[in-house]
Design a protein around this nucleic acid. Structure first.
Length: 577
DNA sequence: AGCTGGATTGGG
DNA sequence: AGAACCCAATCCAGCT
């Protein structure tokens, strides 16, 4: 697929305790085949990885790489068949008749450790344990890899799809590494925050002091000593009985009312959320030996963003960031990209005016300087409105100002919206395509164009068309931003691995055998990374983070003059200053 | 008893 | 404030 650097492809498969490794030449022909027992795999991979430039081709990174890392073996590059299949199957750049497009066992959810040993109790039909994840047989893998090479080589833009496959596969490695290394988490700090906010931890697992106190004040204000506060319908009825005629129990609606119950109720909701989502139970389940190890799901969102499954890694409340603390003698390098999505939009659209406004500074301040809008706050909501498809309110009112000043960028998102409204498919910069509309959607559209269509039919069809337009409008920007972030992390991963190791693996053993002696990625959240680094290498790691951002911009957008400035700090804790 | 969907709130 | 996009986790209600 990539014939430029001479690295060989080694395809791995396994059956009944033995691994088969097939080495392929640049033309895809089989050069060599060998088998070995599963326990011998790490040593063999480690030796080959040191000796030669290898790209490992495997079904699913979590299935293969978690065990390698645990055995102390890190690899440089892979091709993740499951993730790349999902991209190529749907990509508009791939020919409609390509074999990768037909339904197959590669349309699989990721491997989940232990999932095969938990069959549903009342499952009908087969009583066999169905292992989760894609096929593991090596010949299946070789065949699928050939289909994917064919799909890419025969596509409209092989270069872009090669980049996307490489970036997505690097992300697959990084997700496994992030879990293996873990985010340094100081449980005593977390406990102190909980105790400060909620009051003393109840011994028998009951309600914390301050939560109980807030509940008592709510019930007193309602004049109902047994009011249920955790059931939305019951709470709504209690509020109505007290003369507060809200339609929901949401924070924003409650805040509009003046009544003695409002303040304690909002307090109750805040505390209740903290204890149930990130309280002591969460701490006991997800933090062990000073590390938070969430499950990241690369490509888990239609746009290509990562999702998480378990631990809520992408939903950590700001309130708890103080619990993210570097090990003794180590530092955190915390970096996020300022206004990633509008910068990506400027580059995709080749909109020099927007790129100028973004250059070297706060993009929203730059927009104000162009005169498109008067205030920074207006620039922000106008830009978000343009990318999300707002049509009403302040945002909808301000978008036309942007359309005059940045016609190219606005045309890109407007075109994406029009395509989506008409039932079409849109693609990101590197070629990830949106899913097509459902059959229900199509049926609603054709029913509305019947001669005897009712007003209800027409209204619904219009609404669904506009909903889909907003989705495709945002898809191209959010998805390309996700690609930029993958490229950033992939490049950063390589730079960090090149920094000389320090001390011995006992220095910070909690990160495991691979990550205890050198800077490593510890956290990722859409446009932010946290690197955990030995103090003496913190500056080098920070430089690597900055250089990787510049490299990612060049990799995706060549010499188009867009920059990606970072907000970066080196600190012992992730708490905001 | 287990599943699904609504409501809510946390993140970008 | 929301609006307008992409999510996950939790609890509860209502269903089978």
């Amino acid at each position: 697929m990539d014939r430029t650097d001479g690295a060989s492809w080694v395809v791995l498969g396994r059956v009944e305790g033995r691994v088969t490794a097939v080495t392929l030449g640049a033309d895809g022909a089989e050069l060599d085949r060998m088998t070995l027992p599963v326990p011998d795999l790490p040593a063999w991979v480690g030796a080959l990885e040191t000796a030669a430039a290898v790209r490992w081709v495997w079904s699913d990174a979590p299935r293969w790489y978690a065990d390698l890392l645990a055995a102390g073996v890190r690899i440089g590059r892979c091709h993740d068949l499951r993730l790349c299949h999902a991209i190529l199957r749907d990509s508009e750049l791939v020919a409609a008749h390509a074999p990768v497009r037909v339904a197959s066992a590669w349309d699989a959810a990721p491997f989940v450790a232990g999932a095969e040993s938990a069959p549903a109790l009342f499952e009908l039909g087969s009583s066999e344990d169905e292992p989760s994840g894609p096929p593991e047989d090596v010949d299946e893998a070789v065949a699928e890899f050939a289909r994917q090479r064919e799909a890419i080589d025969g596509s409209e833009d092989p270069g872009r799809l090669r980049l996307l496959a490489a970036a997505e596969s690097a992300g697959a490695l990084i997700a496994v590494e992030l879990r293996a290394a873990g985010l340094p988490w100081d449980a005593p700090t977390h406990d102190a925050i909980l105790t400060d906010v909620l009051g003393r931890r109840p011994v028998g697992g009951g309600t914390p002091e301050k939560l109980e106190d807030a509940a008592a004040r709510v019930r007193a204000a309602l004049g109902d000593p047994v009011a249920s506060l955790d059931s939305q319908p019951k709470l709504l009825r209690s509020l109505h009985r007290a003369g507060i005629l809200v339609e929901s129990t949401s924070r924003w609606e409650l805040a509009e009312y003046r009544h003695p119950v409002i303040e304690p109720l909002l307090e109750y909701k805040k505390l209740s959320r903290l204890v149930s989502a990130n309280g002591w139970a969460w701490l006991a389940e997800w933090v062990h030996e000073g590390r938070f190890r969430p499950v990241y799901v690369p490509g888990g969102v239609v746009t290509g963003r990562w999702a998480s499954s378990g631990g809520g890694a992408l939903q950590l409340p700001r309130q708890l960031r103080a619990a993210v603390r570097a090990d003794p003698g180590w530092r955190l390098v915390i970096a996020d990209v300022a206004q990633l999505e509008p910068r990506v939009l400027a580059a995709m659209a080749r909109d020099e005016a927007l790129a100028d406004a973004a250059r070297g500074k706060d993009l929203y301040a730059g927009i104000v300087e162009t005169g498109a809008v008067a205030l920074r706050s207006e620039a922000k909501i106008a830009m978000l409105g343009a990318m999300y498809g707002a049509t009403t309110g302040d945002s909808g009112r301000l978008v036309p100002g942007l359309r005059r000043t940045f016609p190219r960028a606005m045309a890109l998102v407007d075109d994406a919206a029009r395509t989506g409204e008409n039932g079409g498919v849109v693609s990101t910069w590197l070629g990830r395509s949106s899913p097509p509309p459902s059959s229900t959607w199509h049926e609603a559209q054709s029913r509305a164009s019947d001669v005897d269509a009712s007003g209800v039919d027409e209204t619904r069809a219009r609404r669904w068309a506009r909903d889909r337009g907003r989705f495709t409008r945002n898809f191209v920007v959010q998805g390309t931003a996700a690609e930029w972030a993958l490229a950033w992390m992939a490049d950063l991963r390589g730079r960090l691995a090149a920094i000389a190791p320090v001390g011995d693996a006992d220095a910070a053993p909690r990160s495991g055998p691979i990550f205890s002696t050198r800077p490593h990625l510890a956290f990722f959240l859409h446009d932010e990374v946290i690197v955990h680094a030995p103090e003496e290498h913190a500056e080098a790691a920070a430089s690597a983070v900055r250089e990787a951002a510049a490299a990612a911009g060049r990799l995706l957008f060549g010499d188009f003059p867009i920059d990606f400035p970072l907000e970066l700090r080196i600190s012992e804790s992730a708490e905001k200053d």
